[in-house]
């Protein structure tokens, strides 16, 4: 289903005057949730920037009912909420809106547990690649070479690949999205809303403060991550894997933009720019990433080429 931007009504998808920094990708993402799923959503937010964006009580900057919860319990709290709504006979989308630390590090046991139990919730990881709220500390999802306040010479390890881990759990729906491609993200949310069971969306959210770039470039950096092949967009529904239409052409290495274009926009990679060896390591990482995608594409195919039909029907 294709989204028509022009037909979406003019209304408050997020409340202006919230506490987000200028150019914040999280408020962009929260707007797209409301555009895709409407008002029938309850958010579960573990500690992170989104807890702060709400602003000062008795006002809230986010236009959703919210349960603020501790890091380690986001997915479990959402499971309980969904069970309570089911008991009351209400059909509500329970959406977890967690950062990369709340997903990959601290909240991982609850996430893994909820995925294994196949709880009927949508889990969205807003990946800004570090603990931005507490002052840009490294997380397990910080990419290789990136500066943070705890890796001041650049991180030495590669990024943990949470979407693959979730595919290995055998959940109903896994997708990656980027705030640079809103229509793609909205489509994925609408597709996820039609499926019952555990659904996971990994949303890339470039943070101007932590990644050290101009706040006006948020959308551009998010697009460049996809165009350089660093962040492939794909979907996995019930054992059928496919690359998203936007990202399909980046399968060919010649069509990808050079990764240096993405790196030089960001101050966190400043020390890498005159070190070709380090840039080469990032290029190798991209190659490996696409080998893995190739393998996933070959492994998770529908019988008789029915895969496309499944995507079109949702």
């Amino acid at each position: 289903m294709v989204v028509n931007i022009r037909k979406l009504p003019d209304r408050y998808y997020i409340m202006p005057g919230n506490a987000a920094c200028p150019g914040c990708p999280e408020t962009m993402g929260l707007r797209y949730i409301k555009m895709a799923l409407g008002d029938n959503v309850v958010l579960v937010i573990p500690a992170g920037c989104s807890s702060v964006i709400q602003g000062i009580a008795p006002r809230s900057g986010i236009n959703f009912p919210i349960l603020n919860i501790v890091f380690a319990a986001a997915a479990s709290a959402a499971s309980g909420l969904k069970a309570a709504f089911e008991a009351q006979g209400k059909d509500v989308h329970v959406v977890v809106w967690a950062g990369d630390g709340g997903t990959g590090d601290i909240g991982f046991q609850a996430l893994s547990g909820a995925a294994e139990r196949d709880e009927d919730i949508i889990y969205i990881c807003v990946d800004n690649e570090a603990y931005m709220n507490t002052g840009i500390q490294r997380s397990s999802l910080t990419p290789y070479g990136a500066w943070t306040t705890t890796t001041w010479t650049g991180k030495k390890e590669h990024k943990k690949n949470i979407p693959y881990i979730l595919i290995s759990h055998g959940v109903k729906y896994v997708a990656t999205a980027s705030v640079g491609y809103p229509t793609d993200f909205i489509e994925k949310l609408q597709r996820a809303a039609k499926i019952r069971g555990f659904r996971y969306i990994h949303l890339l959210a470039p943070c101007p403060i932590g990644w050290r770039f101009d706040p006006g470039l948020t959308a551009k950096v998010a697009q460049l991550a996809v165009q350089t092949g660093l962040f492939p967009l794909y979907e996995y529904i019930n054992g059928v894997f496919r690359l998203s239409p936007i990202a399909k052409k980046y399968k060919d290495p010649k069509k990808r933009k050079p990764v240096i274009e993405y790196l030089k926009l960001q101050g966190r990679y400043k020390h890498l720019l005159n070190k070709p060896d380090e840039v080469k390591k990032i290029e190798e990482y991209i190659e490996n990433l696409w080998h893995l995608i190739d393998a996933l594409e070959k492994t998770f195919t529908a019988e008789g080429g029915k895969g496309e039909a499944i995507y079109r029907s949702l």
Binding site: Y12, P16, G17, N18, A57, S60, G61, N63
Partner: peptide
């Protein structure tokens, strides 16, 4: 505790 409700300007005129 008082519940927060969505409103304009939760941290003032930004």
């Amino acid at each position: 505790a008082p519940l927060s409700r969505p409103a304009l300007g939760s941290v003032g005129k930004t």
